[in-house]
């Protein structure tokens, strides 16, 4: 296959950016999208140009490091991560636009690489169970209904890639925050500090400059791990109940 890539190039956080055009030939349909960028970078290096910077690591869809907007869609047209997006979903001769995640809370570091540390700060503000090492009771001391464990898992599957923020018209991190609140809120171990958690995480989310939720559902559509949209409603309920109890 032969493809034209239009890639966002930006030298640094404060530098101006632009879309640059590259032709990539010999693309195999079995390549992943990131392998196309690898190939492009090898060529650029040998031509004496600066390769395209992009985040990536595990290349099997679980670490959450990669993430680019492909033709206006976070992680591209398939419901998976960019590293698991294969070129057989594109046609020979296609022109493909590649942009970084766009959000005030995700400043561009370079080219397609953004700073997602705001997500880490949301978790640090309350996305944990306070259980210092050694203090744990015997694991079977507290049975957890299978349904609750499954619901916790479904939300815990979030990989923190930020596609929800990138896809949301408001750059909102509600799906990410809700996934953590619901993961821990579904379990008896996490319920104890549930009020503090949800209030702190929502406040941090706002402080970091993420937008609000307008319930468009774009986040859940883009999520490579299928975090369910109703988690947002559940977190809202938890937040309002916690706010009521706060006096």
């Amino acid at each position: 296959m032969r493809l034209t890539l239009r890639v966002w190039r930006q030298a640094g956080p404060d530098a101006p950016g632009r879309m640059a055009r590259y032709e990539v030939t010999d693309v195999s349909p079995d390549m992943s999208f990131l392998e196309v960028l690898d190939t492009l970078n090898e060529e650029l290096t040998l031509r004496g140009e600066e390769p395209v910077a992009f985040d990536h690591d595990c290349r099997e869809g679980i670490c959450g490091a990669c993430g680019v907007v492909v033709n206006g869609q976070a992680h591209g047209p398939e419901r998976t991560t960019a590293c698991q997006l294969h070129m057989r979903h594109f046609a020979d001769g296609d022109t493909i636009d590649v942009e970084p995640w766009r959000a005030a809370a995700f400043p561009v570091v370079k080219d397609l690489m953004v700073d997602r540390s705001a997500l880490d700060r949301i978790v640090a503000s309350g996305g944990y169970v306070t259980a210092p090492t050694g203090s744990a009771p015997e694991a079977h001391a507290m049975p957890v209904p299978k349904e609750d464990a499954e619901r916790a898992f479904e939300n815990a599957a979030c990989i923190g890639c930020g596609a929800c923020v990138a896809a949301c018209p408001n750059g909102s991190a509600m799906l990410f925050t809700a996934a953590k609140a619901e993961h821990l809120g579904a379990l008896p171990q996490g319920r104890v500090e549930g009020d503090r958690r949800v209030l702190a995480m929502v406040e941090t989310m706002d402080d970091e400059g993420f937008g609000g939720c307008t319930n468009t559902g774009a986040c859940a559509t883009a999520c490579p791990k299928g975090i369910p949209l109703p988690s947002i409603a559940a977190m809202n309920r938890g937040f309002l109940a916690a706010a009521r109890r706060a006096r």
């Binding site: 879309m19 206006g72 942009e99 959000a103 400059g209 937008g211």
Partner: peptide
């Protein structure tokens, strides 16, 4: 304000 730069595509 949360999306200061729009997507080109």
């Amino acid at each position: 304000a949360a999306r200061p730069v729009a997507y080109v595509h």
